[in-house]
C-alpha cells in the first residue's frame, strides 16, 4: 500500500514529527511504500539542517534525512509555509525538497492513505 504522510508540527516542541517518523519506519518495515512525506505549518522546521540538539537526544532532522536516503523517500517542504518561517534552500537538510502545496494534494490523490500528524 502507498502511504502519504503530512507533518504539521516542528521538531521537539511537539511529538508529531516523532510519531510520523515511527509510523514511516514501521510502514516501510512492513513492505509498504511511502509516496511522499509533506511538511507543512511549523512542520517545515523539521527540514532545518542547522538543527543541533544535545548529544544524548535524537536528531529529528537527521533521522528523516537518513530514512529518506535509505528508502529514497520523497520529502517535500511547503514553499509558502517555509518562506514564512525562513526555511529556504540554503538551510535544507539532505533529502528535503521545497515545492508547492500542489504536492500535498497530489499525495492525497496518488496515495492509498494520507495520515496527518499534527497538534
Amino acid at each position: 500500500m502507498k502511504f502519504g504522510i503530512l507533518v504539521n508540527e516542528g521538531p521537539y516542541q511537539h511529538q508529531a514529527s516523532d510519531s510520523a517518523y515511527q509510523f514511516a519506519v514501521a510502514a516501510l518495515a512492513k513492505g509498504h511504500q511511502i509516496y511522499r512525506v509533506f511538511f507543512y505549518n511549523d512542520g517545515v522546521n523539521n527540514a532545518n539542517k542547522l538543527t543541533e540538539p544535545p548529544q544524548d537526544d535524537r536528531n529529528i532532522t537527521r533521522q528523516w534525512s537518513t530514512l529518506a536516503a535509505e528508502h529514497r523517500l520523497d520529502m517535500v517542504v511547503c514553499v509558502a509555509a517555509g518562506l514564512r518561517r525562513g526555511i529556504k534552500a540554503e538551510i535544507l537538510a539532505p533529502g528535503f525538497n521545497i515545492s508547492g502545496l500542489g504536492q500535498l494534494i497530489q499525495a492525497g490523490i496518488e496515495a492509498d492513505r494520507l495520515v496527518v500528524f499534527g497538534d
Binding site: Y40, N41, A81, G102, L104, I105, I109
Partner: peptide, 19 residues
Amino acid sequence: TIYALEALEVVLIGAAFDQ
C-alpha cells in the same frame, strides 16, 4: 494560531486540481 489561515491556503490550491 495559524492553522485556519494555512488550511485555507491548502484549500485554494486544492481547488485547481478538480477534485
